[in-house]
Design a protein around this nucleic acid. Structure first.
Length: 427
RNA sequence: GCGGGCGUCGCCAAGUGGUUAAGGCAGCGGCUUGUGGCGCCGCUAUUCGGGGGUUCGAAUCCCCUCGCUCGCCCCA
């Protein structure tokens, strides 16, 4: 019989890792809550068209990375490769903007069919933020600041924030022509992929990691010099607000993002400790997307951060999320005692104690060994003798250096009170 | 989709052509049929990701395949 395995690029989160995830999720929830940002949850399957129209037909994500299939009703479906399109769809579908601008956050699995590597999986998780109906440059600054503060609060160090302005649609068309013309004159010096990209997606050439291409790009005209006055003003204001907030950043004129919908402000937070996939959080403004998807023209900005990449950084610095502490470990042997242990464990749980009941039926010595390792504060021990007398033995778990511990017999009726007293004096 | 590295027990591993595949941790059982971190003893891979081939003989060599991993591409 062959061993069954999970699908390539799909990763299980084991109990130990889940603790860290929960810790992060709680932090994030606090930050969002305090910034008046509300959670939204949308399905992970959407009509394929939502993404092909929203993200852009020519992008890699849509072109070759989507999990697309037909359901039994012949609908063309896709597992979401990112969150923004879904949020926009839901916002339009339920007319949320009629109540005014929306500050929303989401988290959940995304799917992209790529070759897995460090910081990249086929199912991965994003935590994201969308400000819909916000036009003022302060909204750009606020979203970025929320991301920054969260990451700092999580204990991350050595982060780099880069921002850029992509201008408006017209700016990009003008710039694109400009850039293509300029690069055509130097075509022979470009690397293969960049040459191929010259007419399909020339802006992405700016991102090339090829050293020779990078050398040429040093001289290249940059979009930021050609953007419209409105966009320039916005960038200046965003910079000013970030400075006011004490958030360090650099302007990177070559920062372009892979999804078509971005305009004006674009930004990325990266860490060199991540390997090749160094972006931990990325986003930007998408003023045209809502209209593109059938809503009224509405400005918006948002970002997403990769949970797995965050975990990668956090597992180096091991934050202070402790293993769940246990209050009580119950050891029992014999049918009468075992039944009593069942009843007691339930009673104690109702009183909010964290209790593990040993169900192995193995010898006392074995069960006690397990109790020892369980990190429980107290051990309750029940044999048939005790069960018959209507009592249990309670001991404190051994600590380092202690040779012996007190044990005392207690009537079952007094157990709960006794434990309450003990837990008040003990910790 | 394209490159490089790797794949021996639940985990960490030794072994690089020759009779029964080290060791450690964890697990289980015992010493102690009912009282704990230690110790001692025992058990736990007919099999080296899978399939085929070379050979008298393969975990060790060759081919294919699957998986993991790192990088390219791209993105969070």
């Amino acid at each position: 019989m062959d061993k069954l395995q999970g699908l390539r690029g799909m990763v299980d989160l084991l109990p130990e890792q889940v603790l860290l995830w929960q810790w992060i999720e709680n932090k994030a929830r606090q930050h969002f809550h305090r910034a008046s940002i509300q959670e939204i949850r949308t399905p992970i399957i959407e009509p394929t068209e939502l993404f092909s129209r929203g993200i852009g037909e020519a992008t890699d994500v849509v072109g070759k990375e989507m999990y697309t299939f037909c359901d039994r009703g012949e609908r063309n479906c896709t597992l979401r490769p990112e969150g923004t399109a879904s949020i926009v769809r839901a916002t339009i579908e339920h007319n949320l903007l009629s109540k005014g601008p929306q500050r929303l956050w989401y988290s959940g699995p995304m799917f992209r069919y790529e070759r897995p590597q460090a910081g990249r999986q086929r199912q991965f998780h994003q935590l994201g933020l969308e400000y819909l109906g916000f036009k003022d440059p302060r909204s750009d600054a606020e979203t970025i600041t929320v991301a920054w503060d969260l990451l700092i609060d999580l204990g991350l160090k050595n982060l780099n924030l880069e921002i850029n302005s992509l201008g408006n649609l017209n700016d990009r068309i003008v710039y694109r022509n400009h850039l293509v013309k300029w690069l055509e004159e130097r075509k022979d010096y470009l690397d293969q992929t960049s040459q191929a990209r010259l007419y399909t997606n020339p802006l992405r050439i700016l991102d090339s990691k090829d050293p020779k291409t990078q050398e040429i790009l040093k001289e290249t005209p940059v979009l930021i010099d050609l953007i419209c006055p409105e966009s320039r003003e916005r960038l200046e204001r965003v910079k000013a607000e970030l400075s006011n907030a004490g958030v360090p950043f650099t302007v990177n004129p070559k920062l372009v993002r892979g999804l078509d919908y971005y305009c004006h402000t674009a930004f990325e937070i990266t860490s060199h400790q991540l390997g090749a996939q160094s972006t931990i959080c990325g986003g930007g403004r998408y003023d045209g997307l809502i209209e593109e998807l059938g809503g009224k023209p509405t400005p918006a900005i948002g970002w997403a951060l990769g949970m797995e990449r965050l975990m990668l950084l956090l597992s180096n610095s091991q934050p202070n999320c402790e293993l769940s502490q246990k209050d009580i470990f119950i050891v029992s042997r014999g049918e009468k005692a075992e039944s009593l242990a069942m009843a007691i464990s339930r009673k104690l749980r109702k009183a909010n104690f964290i209790v593990e009941n040993d169900l192995s039926g193995s010898a006392f010595a074995k069960q006690l060994k397990r109790a020892d390792r369980s990190n429980a504060h107290w051990i309750i021990l029940i044999g048939d003798d005790e069960a018959t007398k209507g009592e249990v033995i309670i001991k404190t778990n051994k600590r380092e250096g202690e040779a012996q511990t007190d044990k005392q017999n207690i009537k079952i009726d007094n157990l709960l009170n006794r434990l309450k007293i003990l837990s008040n004096t003990n910790h």
